[in-house]
Computed example of a mutant assay.
Amino acid sequence: MLIHPARFWNFMARGYARRPVKDTKSYQHKLDITASYLQPTDTVFEFGCGSGTTSLIHAPRVSHIDAIDFSSEMIAIANEKASAKEIQNVKFSVSTLQDWPQPQNGSRYDAVLGMSILHLLPDLDDALAQVHRLMKPGAYFFSSTVCLGDMSALIHLALAPFGALGLLPKVLPLKADGTQKTMRLYSSSQGNLFN
């Protein structure tokens, strides 16, 4: 691969952080749904947190958030934002989901967030297994992601060569129905609630 995904996102981070959210109505809807399940005593984990916006918005609603991204530049931006807003209950760390240490039973999370990230992971089943190990029984998993498989075939065909050449990160061509089915099947087989 010519461009390692972490290097790609390190390069893109400052520009990405400066861009406003394109669909503010949808983003606010996702925030509202997630917030309706969060409790002041909750500990939360977010993977693929990017520049930290979502974690920082939810921080006043919960006890603590551990938020990770494999891009060191994204985490630097997230820490700058937390410092500017004087938010101290979010810990941002450079890590992949696979490398994050598995918590002991008493320190698992009440909620896990994987927002706009599942389509960028190398293996959805492995990611869901990792998420399950992080969750307390009855915890919630919140996710929204791009379902490239539901979009025009031309979009997928246009992006695929750039991913294959290593010029862009590879994107899983997820479909909404298949992704929801995978989560439901995984949820029932693991005995945890995925939302």
Rank of each mutant, 00 (worst) to 15 (best):
R14K: 15
N105C: 00
Y37K: 04
R61E: 08
T43A: 02
F70H: 09
Y16P: 03
A160L: 15
I117D: 00
A82R: 05
G138H: 09
C147N: 13
H132D: 15
G52A: 07
H29T: 03
R133D: 14
P173R: 11
L2I: 10
P60A: 07
F162T: 13
P137D: 08
S36I: 13
K25N: 08
G138F: 12
C147S: 14
A164T: 10
G166I: 01
K30H: 14
G138P: 11
M74K: 04
D66Q: 14
D66P: 00
L157E: 02
L113Y: 00
K170W: 02
S187F: 03
V94A: 05
Q190S: 13
N105H: 10
L172G: 09
D126Y: 07
S152V: 11
P101Q: 09
M151A: 12
D125V: 12
T24C: 09
N195I: 15
L121C: 01
L159P: 00
A158D: 11
L154K: 11
V112D: 03
S93I: 09
A153C: 02
Q98W: 04
A84K: 12
L185I: 01
Q88N: 14
G191N: 08
S72D: 10
Q104H: 10
S116L: 09
L56N: 04
L56H: 00
N192Q: 10
H64K: 15
S72W: 06
P5R: 07
Y27R: 03
G106Y: 10
R18L: 14
I75M: 02
L185S: 07
M12N: 11
A59I: 14
F141W: 15
R61I: 11
Q180R: 03
S143T: 02
H29D: 07
G52T: 08
